[in-house]
Design a protein around this nucleic acid. Sequence first.
DNA 1: AATTCTTGCTTCATCGATTGAGCAAAGTTG
DNA 2: CAACTTTGCTCAATCGATGAAGCAAGAATT
Lengths: 341, 341
Amino acid sequence: MNQVKQTKRTTIYDLAELAGTSASAVSAVLNGNWKKRRISSQLAEKIMRIAEEQGYALNMQASLLRREKSHIIGMIVPKYDNRYFGSIVELFEDMARARGLFPIITCTRRDPQLEVEAARTMLSYQVECLIATGATDPDRITEMCAAAGVRSLNLDLPGALAPSVISDNFAGARELTRRILKNSEQRLGKMEPLLFIGGRGSDHNTAERIRGFRGAHADLGVAVHEENILACGYAPEKAEKALDERALGGNALPKGMFVNSTISLEGVMRWIRRSGHLDDRSLVLGCFDWDPFVTLLGNGIEMVRQDVPGMLNKVFELIESGANKPVVIQVPPLIPEAQEA
Amino acid sequence: MNQVKQTKRTTIYDLAELAGTSASAVSAVLNGNWKKRRISSQLAEKIMRIAEEQGYALNMQASLLRREKSHIIGMIVPKYDNRYFGSIVELFEDMARARGLFPIITCTRRDPQLEVEAARTMLSYQVECLIATGATDPDRITEMCAAAGVRSLNLDLPGALAPSVISDNFAGARELTRRILKNSEQRLGKMEPLLFIGGRGSDHNTAERIRGFRGAHADLGVAVHEENILACGYAPEKAEKALDERALGGNALPKGMFVNSTISLEGVMRWIRRSGHLDDRSLVLGCFDWDPFVTLLGNGIEMVRQDVPGMLNKVFELIESGANKPVVIQVPPLIPEAQEA
DNA sequence: AATTCTTGCTTCATCGATTGAGCAAAGTTG
DNA sequence: CAACTTTGCTCAATCGATGAAGCAAGAATT
């Protein structure tokens, strides 16, 4: 506070000089193990006072270079545009800090190239562990980490080479589909096969959800029409375009729809609005993911809410247990009480 | 890839030994200035090949310790639970990387204590610049940064000690209020004073928005009722509770409402739903912030969308210009086309 | 009084990458 | 062919924090 401009930042050597002692005593005092190093509490207090006065801040780079463990934990995440990833990131930061770790997070926009670059950068920063959330190529990341002797875990989408924590997509999708079919029966008087829209056919979650979707149809004796399975990608525009195309060709569009994410739901709602179905109460929707406004959309849209705290608990359990085997842990999603129509 | 387990990570010394050369040649080659250091392209290629084979990753801690500039840029952000902060973070990461900077972001949950701790940690990581987004105590952060000789900027909420980039809250709120009043006239046949809900009375943005709210009322000759200004905080529950309390005491609740954030709108919509007004088409709402689902809520809710790219452009302009004076730059928000009711 | 133990420090090597200075060999010039 | 320049590297100090090893002075023990 005294100096207005400081070209150089204060180091332990500066503090040592001011205190008339050695840098190593300063280091011992400031990192808290001065009792073990037998520094007198007099000197300790003096050093702490001076550090305070000078506004000393540790140089983490120097500290980390010397220490064996970095206590940095990294996470890559596809997007920040929905509540699911938002809450993952927020809670992850919290849980990491509660464990004395420093979280660094980076957003890779579902871009495999960016994922690899981000992982490489995080390894440069000496992360002790890297969580790949919803990665398009999780095994690539696991390999990079393994080569550097760093642990890695997959979250949301599983990989074959590292432990993975994911939602129980199959069970969640089956229950969601069952609910949409039941609502559809109730509102339309009959049970018709649903439309599935959103997600990538190539990703594990989407595949499992489609399996659950088929399963629920089978359970209730309803045949699935292949032309009604539109794994068109996640972006709203893609869902909108897919519905346009589906509406043009073939049979009439189903009244009931299973939407594979809130972000796809955005496109679906846009399409519904544009095509004049907004007040069509006969549309029966369900969404695999949760957003508070969707509840309020007023069309009785069913949602599945992925259990973020549950998933992150498993993640930290895995980290703490040191397990490295490529298991897949499935966390059941939460299914809120049925919505009124 | 060759070794299954590596206890130690590969360093430039390992590579030097493998290449039969010196660490300094390896360093020069790998950080790209080997031409300046007159390393032959033969040796350069050899070193790069070996580095690739060994899966070498730079130790950033060591590199940063030696270099003068860290190229790390930090941002603190209050929450990840809305589109506004989500897009700020996503675009910030992008723009930072495009400029060769490494972004680190941390979420401080509107907690002043956490803000200070996060800032201190970022300073330890040698950030070159710290962006305090929506900070509750931005000047405290600026002081900490100044003491360490680090630049800081405020985003979203202004401070008195560093340059600030914020939305033009006054103009945005005035226009939003004007639109709600006009919609209200159109739908209800008359223009009645609105309710203002959400935000903290103590924060600059809320104060400015209230000023714009009053201004638009005055412009249109409508008197504002003080009991209708509820700066109850941002959380949905707070908005819900505030409406409950307001509904109990005093006059009838206004039909028109200015909601100060999407997160408060969540609470407002919950209240509306719970109190049986969900299908009440006479409710006329506007929200200072944008969310795609709000458009689809179907009640013709007006929105103001803060110009995130515009704001971040200003932020990086300030960073690049090196300006340090505590100016406040106001970026006009975008007001989408009026919604049909 | 001589020995051992304890206290309270300091010294110095180290972590891995960077870079100014320096040096030998090859190439060029007068 | 001597003097100078250029090429292509190596050496060694350095960034700031850490902690094992060591050392001097005083306290306790025999």
